[in-house]
Simulated assay, not measured.
Amino acid sequence: MSGFAWHRRSKRIIANFTGFEADLLRSLASQLVELLRNEAAVPREDMDPFEAMMDFSGPTSEPDDPVLARLFPTAYPQDEEAAGEFRRFTEGTLRDGKARAACTIIDGLEEAGLPPELTEDGLMIDVELDAPTAEVWMRSFTDLRLALATRLGVEEDDEHYWHSLPDDDPRAQAHDIYEWVGYLQETLIEALTDA
Rank of each mutant, 00 (worst) to 15 (best):
M1N: 04
S2C: 03
G3T: 08
G3Q: 12
F4K: 05
H7E: 09
R8N: 04
R9F: 03
K11H: 07
R12I: 00
R12V: 02
I13V: 10
N16F: 08
F17A: 01
T18A: 05
T18K: 01
G19I: 01
G19A: 03
G19Q: 02
G19R: 00
E21H: 00
L24H: 02
L24R: 04
L24W: 03
L24N: 04
R26W: 00
S27F: 07
L28T: 00
A29Y: 00
E34K: 11
R37E: 13
R37P: 03
N38I: 08
E39D: 15
E39H: 06
E39Q: 08
R44E: 13
E45A: 08
D48C: 05
D48K: 04
P49R: 04
P49A: 03
F50I: 15
E51G: 05
A52C: 04
D55S: 10
S57N: 14
T60M: 12
S61K: 09
S61A: 14
D64L: 09
D64W: 02
D64H: 08
V67L: 11
L68E: 14
R70F: 02
P73C: 06
A75Y: 00
P77N: 04
D79F: 11
E80T: 10
E81C: 11
E85V: 06
E85G: 12
F86R: 10
F86K: 08
F86G: 06
F89C: 11
D96S: 14
D96H: 14
A99W: 02
R100P: 01
C103N: 13
T104F: 03
I105N: 00
G108V: 00
L109V: 02
L109G: 01
L109A: 05
E111L: 06
A112E: 01
A112F: 03
A112V: 01
P115K: 07
P116A: 10
L118K: 15
T119M: 10
T119G: 12
E120N: 06
D121K: 15
D121I: 14
D121F: 07
M124V: 11
M124K: 12
V127S: 03
V127W: 01
E128D: 12
D130S: 11
A131V: 12
P132E: 04
T133M: 12
E135T: 03
E135R: 02
E135P: 00
W137N: 00
M138K: 12
S140H: 01
S140I: 01
S140R: 02
L144I: 07
R145E: 06
L146C: 10
A149R: 15
R151W: 08
R151L: 11
L152N: 12
E155A: 11
E156S: 14
D157R: 12
D158A: 13
E159Q: 08
E159P: 06
H160R: 10
H163S: 12
H163N: 13
S164W: 01
L165D: 10
D168M: 13
D168L: 15
D168T: 13
P170F: 15
Q173G: 14
A174G: 09
H175K: 07
H175Y: 15
Y178R: 06
E179G: 09
G182I: 03
L188E: 05
L188H: 06
I189H: 14
E190F: 06
E190V: 08
A191P: 00
L192T: 03
L192A: 04
T193K: 14
A195V: 07
A195H: 08
